[in-house]
Amino acid sequence: MDWIPLILSLKLAATTTILLLVVGIPIAYFLAYTKFKIRFLLEAILGLPIILPPTVLGFYLLLAFSTSSPLGLWLQNLTGISLVFSFLGLVIASMIYSLPFMIQPLKNGFETVDHSMLELAEVLGKSKWITFRKVILPNSIKSIITGAILTFAHTLGEFGVVLMIGGSIPKETKVASIAIFEYVETLNYQSAHRYALILLGISFLILVTVQALSMKKEKRR
């Protein structure tokens, strides 16, 4: 069995999750606490990948990443490589595709931190950064883990966007979901089964973990 598509899937999911944690936490913080009146518009834009067909998103990303677009050209000059049909392109596309799955749990977690604790930190003279690090983050751990797990799982199961942006280049962009599709196309059901079962197992394990986390009583409260 060729393990490379599975390893690529896991690598893509892990990279996307880590990068989205870095990008998603400040965005979710902004959405949770801003008094910006058109916040709803920003939330709608960031939530688009949830309802948009992956092929639509993939199509527009393909156009944006291609060197015939100003953005694609600029990115190629910046990174030195073409984003289309590359692992880096897959990572960026996955980040956009999975963004709402990270942002939503984080935002909900930040919003549910007891407001009087935030006010207490303020009257004790703590800066916004200290309050975030010492009060908001520790009280949002469950939401952060949930966001990370959902992002990981969502990226692992990605197909449409991955196919549009990455194609199916072995050892570069041919992830497990693409491999399954190709094996089915060639009627090689046995090989498709192997990948499918492993993905099924991982997905089930992830869901069990999320459920266990949500059921876990908050001992400290």
Binding site: D114, M117, E119, L120, V123, G125, V135, N139
Partner: peptide, 15 residues
């Protein structure tokens, strides 16, 4: 502001 404030509900940091 150098002002501390005990809230009515005696808020503490729960974590």
């Amino acid at each position: 502001r150098s002002c501390s404030y005990l809230f009515q509900d005696a808020t503490l940091f729960s974590h």
